[in-house]
Amino acid sequence: MKPAAFEYHAPRTVEETLALLWNYGEDGKLLAGGQSLVPTMNFRLTQPTALIDLNGIDELFFLREEDDELRCGAMTRQRAVERSDLVKRIVPLLHETMPHIAHTQIRNRGTIGGSLAHADPTAELPALAIALDASMYVRSFTDARWIAARDYYVGLFTTSMEPEEMLLEVAIPGLPAGSGWAFEEVARQKGNYAMCGAAAVVDLAEGGSIGHVSLVFLGVGEAPVEAERAATLLVGEKPTAAAIRAASDAAAKLDIDPVGDIHAGPAFRRHLAGVLAERVLTKACARAAGYEG
């Protein structure tokens, strides 16, 4: 229950950090908020040669609006996002989801970039990143690139970043007026890892039919799962209770293939996905139509 020894580095700049990562490769581990990494180190499931602490890199802590997008530095604390009026105004889905992430003590340390890069399949932020069509700005000592959230998550705790790359920033397009959104999850206990969660973003076209819909689940796969068949069923339809029900059933039956664990078997997770899909789609459509704030 105590971590193994490691070399500790506390760089002050991104450049310094990228040089360290270049040298250590897979033997170097970045320490962001530490709310997932440090437990695994305490259990000695993770024993990095070097721990590179990002908490002293001021340039990674920011929240700003740029080109109708929310730009969030990787080290921005989850609590800061939860409390940000800017976030509430331009990406209200993110604002509404934050309290579902663990507990206040965890969000006081936990960071946006840490959670996104950790790629826990039951975490809220990766699913949200896909639902909101976010992009990740990633750098190594030699290169820089943007990765769409859809291409960022490739498997269990696995992203498309290379060991020498680091996530610096996430860009989240603001939700346009007239779009609707919702997030819900079911956990055994408030703040625990959810057994299933769902995020929905809906845009209504002229005439009130559904123009665009993004429905993303957490907890039912090795990475966040986008319900593509459900979306196909809904686009062009009026957002009626029957259409939403049919799409939610399709999502639960066709779009996911959950495995069970000690907390919930596959059938129960599938059931939760259907129920949550119906709830978030209903709420998102109502919000898009202006029925609900």
């Binding site: 500790y8 530490g34 709310q35 440090v38 437990p39 305490n42 003590q105 006081n108 340390r109």
Partner: peptide, 8 residues
């Protein structure tokens, strides 16, 4: 408020 077991 923070968890002191998750900080070095």
């Amino acid at each position: 408020a923070v968890r002191s077991c998750l900080l070095f």
